[in-house]
Deep mutational scan, measured.
Amino acid sequence: MSIQHFRVALIPFFAAFCLPVFAHPETLVKVKDAEDQLGARVGYIELDLNSGKILESFRPEERFPMMSTFKVLLCGAVLSRVDAGQEQLGRRIHYSQNDLVEYSPVTEKHLTDGMTVRELCSAAITMSDNTAANLLLTTIGGPKELTAFLHNMGDHVTRLDRWEPELNEAIPNDERDTTMPAAMATTLRKLLTGELLTLASRQQLIDWMEADKVAGPLLRSALPAGWFIADKSGAGERGSRGIIAALGPDGKPSRIVVIYTTGSQATMDERNRQIAEIGASLIKHW
């Protein structure tokens, strides 16, 4: 067993022997301040990774656009098919120029040779490549099948209805392509620590998230040296922004954090800054 596999296998073990965790309302004060600064709703939840206990939450059962955070769930569904012998990570998928959609920095470079399922998941999570996500959605049967996968996990809230990039439209009061912070946090925890996926697939999923290259201005910008984070960000229309993450000190994750916002007129930089400040408060009061 590799060191990384050992780390993920012992996530519940280490967490069980940690000192009790206590909620700190100071972080919620910052979440509410972010709402004021952005002029928009902000949803927040913080779960203990081992027990699933909610440590703090704000608007945990209000719907927010998922945006690209759905790509972690998508690759979880792909990995479940791999575990069941219905898919192979090494299978190569070929596609054409007509398949390319807006923001496809990886797939646009491989029109000639195609990409493997493993490479597509890596591109979808680490670079948020939209064509990679659409190609992977095709392998599982489309958005409705991802929703069905989530329902089978016990998540009857999260739903995907459309493809990239239309799913980022974020129309107010439109339930399409949305989740709730509580539902997303619980589902992410199941994917990373539950028995739904094999140990190898859980490790692969967290490795992809740990290698995320496009979430630097968010929670990662607030992390002290030595902290662990595996995350996936999302951005959408109407001032929408979000991030889902597993993080913790001492090089291992111990909490799940989900943050979503929508309806702001603020710039992307300002949305990023507010999420980073929430992260800084979380870490300060850990």
Rank of each mutant, 00 (worst) to 15 (best):
S2F: 11
I3D: 08
A9L: 07
I11H: 05
P12M: 14
L19D: 10
V21E: 05
V21C: 15
F22R: 10
T27E: 03
V29W: 15
L38A: 07
L38G: 07
L38V: 07
G39C: 11
A40H: 04
E46H: 08
L49H: 05
L49C: 08
G52T: 05
K53M: 13
S57E: 13
R59Q: 06
F64A: 01
T69L: 02
G76Y: 05
R81M: 08
Q86R: 12
G90F: 10
R92D: 06
S96R: 12
N98E: 15
D99C: 06
E102V: 11
S104D: 02
H110D: 05
T116Y: 05
R118C: 13
E119V: 02
L120Q: 02
C121I: 05
S122H: 12
I125Q: 02
M127D: 07
S128W: 00
D129H: 00
N130R: 00
T131P: 03
A132M: 00
T138C: 12
G142M: 02
L146H: 02
N152K: 13
M153E: 08
G154R: 07
R159E: 06
D161M: 05
E166I: 13
E166K: 12
L167R: 02
N173G: 14
R176T: 07
T179L: 01
A182T: 12
M184Q: 04
T186H: 14
R189K: 14
L192F: 12
T193D: 09
G194I: 05
G194S: 14
L196P: 13
L199R: 12
L199S: 11
L199F: 11
A200P: 13
S201L: 06
Q204E: 14
I206H: 08
E210M: 10
E210Y: 10
K213D: 03
V214Q: 07
L218Q: 03
L219I: 14
R220T: 03
L223A: 10
P224H: 06
G226L: 05
F228T: 07
D231Q: 05
S233D: 00
E237K: 13
S240V: 02
R241G: 05
I243H: 02
I243D: 02
A246E: 06
P249D: 07
G251R: 10
K252M: 13
R255T: 05
I259Q: 01
I259A: 04
I259R: 00
Y260Q: 02
Y260E: 00
Y260R: 00
T261V: 13
S264D: 04
Q265F: 13
Q265N: 09
A266T: 12
A266W: 06
D269T: 12
E270A: 12
A276G: 10
A276E: 09
G279K: 00
G279C: 09
S281P: 03
L282F: 08
I283H: 05
K284C: 10
